[in-house]
Structures are given as structure tokens and as C-alpha cells.
Amino acid sequence: MPVVCVHGLTRNGRDFDALALRLAARGRRVICPDVFGRGFSDWLPDGKLYAVPTYALAFQQFVAQLPKPYDWVGTSMGGLIGMGVGAMPGVAPRRMVLNDIGPFLPGRALQRIAAYLSLRHDFATTEEVETHLRLVHAGFGDLPDAAWRHMAETSARRTPEGRLTLHYDPAIAEPMMSTAITDIDLWPVWETLRQPILVLRGAESDLLDETTAAAMAARPGTRLVTITGCGHAPGLIDPAQTAALADFLGPEHPATATGA
């Protein structure tokens, strides 16, 4: 039974390496794609296309080809995409994990994200990349040094000039920069979802606030887990976090597996 893991706004599929190992050990097939403009996926010809509706439509076609049922894990943007796909008849996942994202996005948090998206990055070494990532992704939590190093090595690409830059198309910022940033209300989408959902919230998150998380948890079939020592978003590297997801998603054949 496949598990599709979709990353956040400026990240890539390698963010799920630790989780993928945990799920694979339980017999799950794990698919961690790079969304358009990130990692090794193609860049789109028009920056305005870098938006959740574009991604959701692309994933609709993608998951239509997968064996059913399948599950979804989405961090931040990946969770928004999952909500979109989860509302589509015929292709919705069986179960869904939303990592520090919900149907209400506060404008102040989006402004913070826009501020770091507006930066242009130029690094001489992987160590400089790591220092930057530790700063802008401090909300991932107190990760081991090896995890930050792995993130730096998988988050940068070499420029023609021999420098390093982050591994995404700078044009992904265009939709946020071209309009006024305000609160975003997606509660009508949330209300269409029918599958069991595990919501992870970083205790210090500004993108998924306590009020929104509590309202999500009131929905039947929704479980909320708050991760202490994290903001936006829990890194899904800590063994306790990956174990919580593995337990929620279950083994390959939950009807027959025992002791998993």
C-alpha cells in the first residue's frame, strides 16, 4: 500500500528519508516526489503557476495511477496539496497526515514566509548552507548535527559559477509577492474531507495556531498530536515522531499483520 509524502514550500522529497525508512520497515512502499520547481523536478515556465491548485491537479493525475488504497503525508504546503487531493472523488487517500498545516493560514505567518522567500541565496560551502538552514528552519526542532548536514547536502545545487544555492526555482515566490498577503480560509475544503487524519502541530508554530488545531481535532476521525520543542514544522526525523506516523498509517496489510 503506497504512502505519498509531499514536502513543504522550499523543501524537497529528501526531507522524508527518516520517515521512509521507518515506513519501509513496516512493509510500506514510500513515494517522496519533488514538487514542481523543487529538487530534481522541472521548473515551470510561468512563476504564477506555482500555486496549490496547480500542484493538486498534477497530483490528481499522479495518484490516479497508484494502486488503491494509498495514504498521504504532507508537511505544510504538502498538507495543503493533500487537502485538495483528499477532497477529490475517486483519488482521495485512505488516511492522511497533516504536518503543521490546517485550513486557516494566518497572514502574519505567511508574511514571515514571504520575507525569507524574498532572499537571494549564494553560498561558498555546504557549511554555509547548513548555517542558513539552521536559522530559517529552526522550527524543525532540535535536530542532530547529522540531520542538519544531510539537509544541507540535499537542499543545495551548484551554480554555473561554482557557487551553491538552494535547490528550488526562485520564481516559486512569485504568487506570494504579487498579491497582498492576508489570512487564508480553507475551512470549506476541510469540511469535505472524510478520511481519518492525524494532525501534527509544533507547539510553537505560527502557521497552525492552537485555535485552528483545536477546531480540526473536533472533527470526527481527527487526532491531534502537539510536538514540544518545535515550531513550523516538526522535522519528522525524531524517532518518536516517525513512530507516531507509522502507528497511525499502519503496516502494509493491517487486516492480517500482527505485532507490527
Rank of each mutant, 00 (worst) to 15 (best):
L193D: 02
T131G: 04
G250T: 09
G82A: 00
E161A: 15
W190N: 04
D238W: 03
L21F: 09
G235L: 05
P234Q: 08
I31K: 05
T165V: 10
A146R: 11
I197F: 00
R95L: 06
L119F: 13
T192P: 02
L119A: 13
Q61N: 13
T192E: 13
G74W: 12
M216G: 10
A156L: 03
M151V: 07
L164G: 11
V129Y: 00
R94Y: 01
P33F: 07
L249P: 12
R38G: 10
M83Q: 12
W148S: 03
A233H: 01
T125H: 00
R149N: 08
A114I: 02
A243I: 08
L9N: 01
T192F: 02
S178W: 05
R194F: 00
A243S: 11
G141W: 13
T179N: 11
H232S: 05
D169F: 02
D145I: 11
L186T: 01
D15Q: 02
P67T: 12
D17K: 03
L105T: 01
V30T: 13
E153K: 11
H137T: 12
D122Q: 13
A56W: 02
D100P: 00
A255V: 04
E204S: 15
A214N: 09
D206H: 05
D15H: 08
A18N: 07
D247Q: 12
P160C: 07
G250F: 04
H137V: 10
D34I: 13
A58M: 11
T75G: 10
A243T: 15
A218T: 12
R157T: 14
T192L: 09
P33R: 07
R94D: 15
L44P: 15
T228D: 15
A233Y: 07
A171Y: 09
L49W: 11
A20L: 02
V97K: 04
Q195C: 13
F36K: 10
I113T: 08
G79F: 00
G221N: 04
I101V: 15
E210C: 04
C230M: 07
W148L: 02
P196E: 10
S205Y: 13
T212H: 06
G259N: 11
V63R: 08
F16H: 05
D142F: 04
R14H: 15
D209E: 13
M176Q: 08
P93L: 01
L143W: 06
Q111V: 01
L249K: 05
D122Y: 06
W148M: 03
V199K: 03
T159E: 10
A213R: 06
G39H: 12
A51L: 01
T126L: 14
A109M: 03
L117T: 04
P239E: 05
S205M: 08
S155E: 01
F36L: 14
R95T: 06
S76T: 09
L49H: 04
I113R: 09
R163D: 09
T131N: 07
A56L: 07
C32G: 01
A173V: 13
R219H: 12
